[in-house]
């Protein structure tokens, strides 16, 4: 871990001003921000740990808990909401067995809601591993989950 972080910081010439991009790279490397990683970044950049913790908790893009292999973000903004996002949210939460903002115990899926992705015409939108999937429905969401290896009890199987 130490070496990987030292390498990332080296890319930014040990410049404190690049703390956010450094943390982004660290998160990409470990899938979240482990405590030891933040301590190491602080020691190498000579930035107080309290300051790094402040930044890591300020931005929602940073996570201090491990995230799943697959990221699912459901838009629950106004347009998506009226087009049925809550039904999809219920469905996904039931299948994964976690609430929005949580990660499944097997670290396969992280499910979260976002408040607007700026593509309301496509609503409801589900972002799966960075890919925007528009006009989402419950059955389409279930199909996507299945494709990613989640066992889904659907009507057809019954």
């Amino acid at each position: 871990m130490q070496e990987k972080i030292a390498h990332i910081i080296g890319k930014y010439h040990h410049d404190k001003g690049f703390l956010v991009p450094i943390l982004q790279d660290v998160q990409k490397e470990f899938n979240y921000l482990p405590k030891e990683a933040l301590t190491t970044v602080g020691a190498l950049l000579q930035v107080p740990l309290s300051r790094i913790y402040e930044i890591a908790t300020f931005y929602r893009a940073f996570s201090l808990t491990p995230r799943g292999k697959h990221q699912m973000s459901l838009c629950v903004g106004t347009a998506c909401h009226v087009r049925g996002a809550p039904i999809i949210q219920d469905g996904i939460e039931r299948v994964l067995g976690v609430k929005a903002g949580q990660t499944t115990a097997d670290l396969e899926f992280t499910f979260e809601t976002v408040n607007c992705l700026g593509a309301c015409a496509l609503g409801p939108i589900l972002v799966v591993d960075g890919e925007y999937q528009g006009q989402m429905t419950l059955s389409k969401a279930n199909k996507l989950l299945k494709k990613l290896g989640k066992k889904v009890a659907t009507d057809e199987e019954d």
Partner: peptide
């Protein structure tokens, strides 16, 4: 000069605390 404490989070959940 030690920076032992700082803020956590933002908005309504912002608060002063120690790291972690």
């Amino acid at each position: 000069g030690v920076s032992a404490i700082g803020f956590e989070g933002r908005g309504t959940s912002r608060r002063v605390t120690t790291p972690f």
